[in-house]
Amino acid sequence: MESLVSTEWLAGESITSDLRIIDASSHLPDAKRDARAEFEAGHICGAIFMDLAGLIDDDAPVENTLPSPEKFASRMALLGLGDGSRIVLYDDSAIHSAARAWFVLKLFGAQNVAILDGGLAKWKAEGRPLTAEPIDLRKRHFTAWHNAKSLRSKAQMLANIQSRAEQVVDARGAARYAGTAPEPRAGMQPGHIPGALNLPYTQLYNADGTFKDKAGIRAAFEDAGVDLSRPIVTSCGSGVTACVLIFALHLVGKSDVALYDGSWAEWGADPQTPKETGASPAISH
């Protein structure tokens, strides 16, 4: 199974014991949408709801922090996701949250994980069927392990400002990156991590919500000033859309990529962290 599958492929794939379809929709609070209620009203046949927004460390001081491996394994087992499962993720979200689900699953050891290109919107636009019927879930064993190499802490990001060993790429919109638009979270200072480049995640998609081809993805990163031969750390508002960048880089074969999970929710809330404002260096001239 490829990492990016088409609606045609999924429609033609029979639901077998090893295939799991997951609705990984999650929305920002200002969207005023209920992902679970929308799932229950209509979803792809055989799909289960992941509740990505609830798959977090409730005790962490920063919102949307990744859960422990134990919590993640327990949740996956209850969803019927076991070792060896083929997993296809989709969403119906402006923040393309399936990419976050893909990153989390890969981080905790899932091997065969794909995203439905174009998500639920493309599925519906093509007139493909939906159902409101739930499926019976049989608990399976999911062995979780934690790939810490794929994550960066605030301390590591602070050290990187001096070393510049890794390129930091911010997935937020240009105005939030520049500090000219207000942050959606209270208490956030404006701007970006010093030295970070800006590639809004929306620039990696075609008009129909499908991913750009490999040449288009490479061009988007290069136009943002990113050197694809060097290591990359991605960041955003709270660690969700930064995963879109990571998945796109995966599609072009780049693996030396990590996520700053705390992102601006952590960095912007700390008065001691340095901040920059202004347009990205790649476009400031």
Rank of each mutant, 00 (worst) to 15 (best):
S3E: 12
E166C: 03
Y205W: 09
A181M: 06
D261S: 12
I21F: 11
L204I: 10
I44R: 02
L4Y: 06
E133G: 05
V169T: 06
K275N: 15
L66E: 02
G225E: 07
K71Y: 06
A125T: 11
Y90D: 09
I44Q: 06
M157Q: 02
F211N: 04
S25K: 12
A98T: 05
C243S: 07
A121F: 01
G209W: 08
R176F: 08
T7K: 02
S238T: 15
A196W: 00
L19R: 02
S3I: 07
L105P: 15
A196Y: 03
P271L: 01
A165M: 10
S238P: 02
E133I: 09
A219D: 11
A174T: 15
T234E: 01
K106T: 15
S280Y: 07
A248T: 09
G268Y: 05
P190S: 09
G187T: 14
V104H: 01
P67G: 05
A279M: 10
Q111L: 13
R172K: 06
A159S: 14
H146E: 13
S229C: 08
T16I: 11
P67M: 03
A35V: 09
D30T: 13
M76G: 13
D170T: 10
S263M: 00
L199I: 12
D270W: 07
R86L: 04
E13G: 01
P184T: 06
Q162M: 04
E183V: 03
V88A: 10
S238M: 03
Q111Y: 05
G84H: 11
G225T: 12
A31I: 00
V5I: 14
L81F: 10
G46N: 02
N112A: 13
A265K: 00
L199K: 04
P274V: 14
